[in-house]
């Protein structure tokens, strides 16, 4: 055992040394978001709420969107209690008329929006044959199409000011399909493709002041994926919400284009196109992700 401990110690020291060295040479300067107006969708719960608190702490005015009025106002209250500026709007992002109408309202009541966090998401967690049709449509409306509407509502303003940042919170399921994720994975793959396109289109305009960040987090223990239990939990435990938000915030503030949480998931992106699907399946099975959805419960609807 002594050797193991010693090895670990040496390893940790080396890691710390290397990362400290890297920080000396590559100081990741964080930008300021003070005075920015930041729209966050799905701000009533989970990491949406945490994003609101973080952005407010940094001096941005946060505009909170959620369908759940009470939860949304609770977030606003929390932000204000921490001496941040917040305004809550009830908005169903799956309804494009709602999005456009409330976007106008935000522009007149709060000001030009310069940060957009597309965070709202839903999951059914059933196998294809059990999925209700309405559930599939809703998943796409919220996880994919909503990104089109919000970006269409706010991007012109950002382009006009040459100042902005669009953040899309996709998921690692946007890179890998899985059991019980037919609709969710498809919608998140879509969001990933959309974000990639958007990135190209913004770069192509030549406006240097507009950034994009795509975040691909692993399961976050906010209740959305309650009951998802991979058998190799030790290697990929669900992320603590605050930890996930911190990592993503770090990426946003340093204008990173892509943020995997945890970062090493990026490694599998390298593997995917070169491993045959059977080999990839072996990896998935090893982590126990193939059966992890069997115990899925998700957010149970009250009623």
């Amino acid at each position: 055992m002594g050797f193991v401990q010693l090895g670990l110690l040496i390893w940790r020291v080396t890691c710390a040394f290397v990362s400290a060295l890297a920080q000396v040479f590559l100081p990741a300067r964080k930008k300021s978001v003070e005075g920015d107006v930041c729209v966050i969708t799905g701000a009533g719960m989970g990491i949406g709420r945490l994003f609101a608190l973080e952005f407010a702490k940094l001096g941005a005015t946060v505009v909170l969107w959620d369908v759940d009025k009470a939860a949304n106002e609770e977030t606003a209250r929390l932000v204000q209690a921490a001496e941040g500026k917040a305004k809550a709007y009830v908005c169903d992002v799956s309804n494009k008329n709602d999005v456009y109408r409330i976007a106008e309202q935000v522009k007149t009541e709060v000001g030009d929006v310069s940060i957009l966090v597309n965070n709202a998401g839903v999951v059914c967690g059933k196998t294809l044959l059990e999925l209700p049709d309405e559930g599939i449509q809703r998943t796409f409306a919220v996880n994919t199409l909503a990104h089109f509407w919000t970006v269409k509502a706010f991007l012109p303003g950002m382009l006009a000011n040459n100042h902005g940042h669009i953040i899309s919170i996709a998921s690692i399921a946007g890179h890998y399909g899985g059991v019980g994720l037919c609709d969710y994975s498809a919608s998140k793959f879509g969001a990933v493709g959309f974000e990639e396109c958007l990135r190209y289109e913004i770069r192509r305009t030549g406006k240097q002041g507009i950034y994009t960040t795509a975040a691909y987090p692993w399961i976050i223990s906010t209740g959305m994926f309650e009951g998802f239990t991979p058998k190799e939990g030790w290697l990929l435990p669900p992320l603590e919400p605050q930890h996930a938000v911190n990592s993503i915030m770090q990426g946003i503030l340093t204008n990173r284009e892509v943020v995997f949480v945890p970062g090493y998931l990026n490694f599998f992106t390298f593997l995917k196109p070169v491993l045959p699907m059977d080999a990839m399946w072996a990896v998935v099975k090893f982590f126990g992700i193939d059966t992890a959805m069997d115990t899925f419960t998700g957010r149970r609807k009250e009623e």
Partner: peptide
């Protein structure tokens, strides 16, 4: 992989890739 100028098409086709990957996994697991 994406190209600029056809974002809706790209989105729809990315989704398909995810869909078939999940479907294959699902049938395999069952």
């Amino acid at each position: 992989f994406a190209l600029p100028g056809v974002s809706d098409y790209v989105t729809s086709k990315f989704s398909l890739v995810g869909f078939y990957e999940s479907l294959a996994a699902e049938l395999r697991e069952q």
